[in-house]
């Protein structure tokens, strides 16, 4: 349940402003219609202008309250970058293939063992996935920690 855009106080103030302003204009119209000379009518005309201004002020107050509420909500909901700088300690390039196949067999050039991509020993290394036969062809053995030779999900890692 989210809060309302306009609070009760704003609704009351705007409603009262429009009602009072409208009544003043009606009163001015009634006064102008009842006077025979222009000199006397101008007083009522000025009163009518005041009524219009009251209504416009109430409308402006209503809109400003709404805009303020939306602004506050944006600041609360939309995350802003923090002023506190947090240095990045390590940037790691992860190949797309390794990221997609979580249980692929991976190794980096120069490594003696091939691992499951989820293996602790493969983390942080520039590994790339390959078929088991390819790893064996390059002289690599299966890792003893993640045991890529065994069934999926069984490892010592």
């Amino acid at each position: 349940m989210t809060a309302s855009l306009w609070g009760t106080r704003t609704r009351l103030v705007a409603g009262a402003g429009w009602a009072v302003g409208g009544l003043i204009v009606v009163l001015a119209w009634w006064g102008v219609s009842g006077e025979a000379t222009v000199g006397h009518q101008f007083h009522w005309l000025a009163l009518g202008a005041v009524g219009v201004l009251v209504c416009l002020a109430a409308g402006a107050a209503w809109l400003f309250a709404g805009m303020r509420a939306v602004g506050r909500r944006i600041r609360a909901v939309v995350p802003v970058p923090s002023d506190v700088r947090r240095p990045v300690r390590e940037l790691r390039v992860v190949s797309e293939a390794a990221a997609v196949a979580a249980d692929a067999l991976v190794a980096a050039p120069g490594m003696r063992y091939f691992h499951r991509s989820s293996c602790t020993l493969a983390r942080g290394k520039a590994v790339r996935p390959a078929e088991r036969a390819e790893h064996l062809r390059e002289g690599r053995a299966a890792c003893g920690v993640c045991r890529p030779e065994g069934p999926a999900g069984v490892s010592a890692a």
Binding site: W18, V25, E35, A36, V38, Q41, G48, C55, G59
Partner: peptide, 25 residues
Amino acid sequence: YSAESLPYIVSGGFFGLLAVAAGGV
């Protein structure tokens, strides 16, 4: 006469202005 036209200015002009302002709001 001017005295005859002023009620029209208030009723037509002021109420028209208020209606347009209310529509904008």
